[in-house]
Design a protein around this nucleic acid. Structure first.
Lengths: 120, 120
DNA sequence: TTAGGTACTATAAATAATGTAAGTAATGAG
DNA sequence: CTCATTACTTACATTATTTATAGTACCTAA
């Protein structure tokens, strides 16, 4: 995940696009496999690592960790560790993270109508 | 591109998510590297292959072809071939393709404010 | 006859993303 | 002392996506 090669054409293409187009920029950030689903769960409140895991059937702990780290890095979620044993860690959307709500809504709307169209 | 392994865990995860969440479904469709940018160019009118190529600095012809094929497959764009020499092919958004406008707009809005936030 | 434009295709290679499986630390319960 | 719990980490394997490079067909104009 964080092993992106900064000399690759792919990397510079992404940079260039992100630079010009805010929508490509956004898509690079939230485009991961599980990113949006995690956010949409968090829209309804903070969740612990284990809770998220249960809500995302099929995700591996590694993947969940990676995605959460990436989201945190992009300031979309915040992470709170409670010094307990066994550990407790809570994830919560930040303000800009919460602002994804309208993006998610639009995607849902579009996705739903696209599904319907294709299904016919 | 179309060499997706239907036995992979990744494939079934994507299917499952797409099934449950329209936003993940949508993201799978428009989440490619160049997809949104192509669509956003097409929002302002039909374009030829070569014109798109010029507007997307860095894209290879193969990538452009692949993305256009994928978009066509998903009924987001339509392709019109004119029987001329040299050939002329025009790409245009379909109705559902045009409906991506609000998604793109929201992404732009979010992307812009995220950029601003991070830049501080 | 040759060059040139247009929209591709073929093949291979590189890079990125995701998955598998196992292990870790801390501590309180038994 | 041993086990269970929770939220990870690590090393490695597999799959997916993107890039590189070269070619193709067609007619037209020179």
């Amino acid at each position: 995940m964080s092993e992106i090669k900064q000399t690759s054409t792919n990397y510079s293409n992404k940079l260039a696009l992100s630079d010009e187009c805010s929508e490509a920029y956004a898509s690079n950030i939230i485009g991961g496999q599980w990113t949006l689903v995690i956010c949409s769960w968090l829209l309804s409140g903070k969740l612990r690592f284990g809770e998220l895991k249960k809500k995302l059937p099929g995700i591996t702990e590694r993947m969940l960790t990676l995605q959460l780290r990436k989201l945190e890095e992009h300031k979309i979620i915040s992470r709170t560790v409670y010094a307990e044993v066994p550990p407790r860690v809570e994830y919560e959307l930040t303000e800009i993270g919460y602002a994804l709500k309208s993006v998610i809504t639009e995607l849902e709307v579009w996705g739903t109508s696209h599904k319907k169209l294709i299904g016919e």
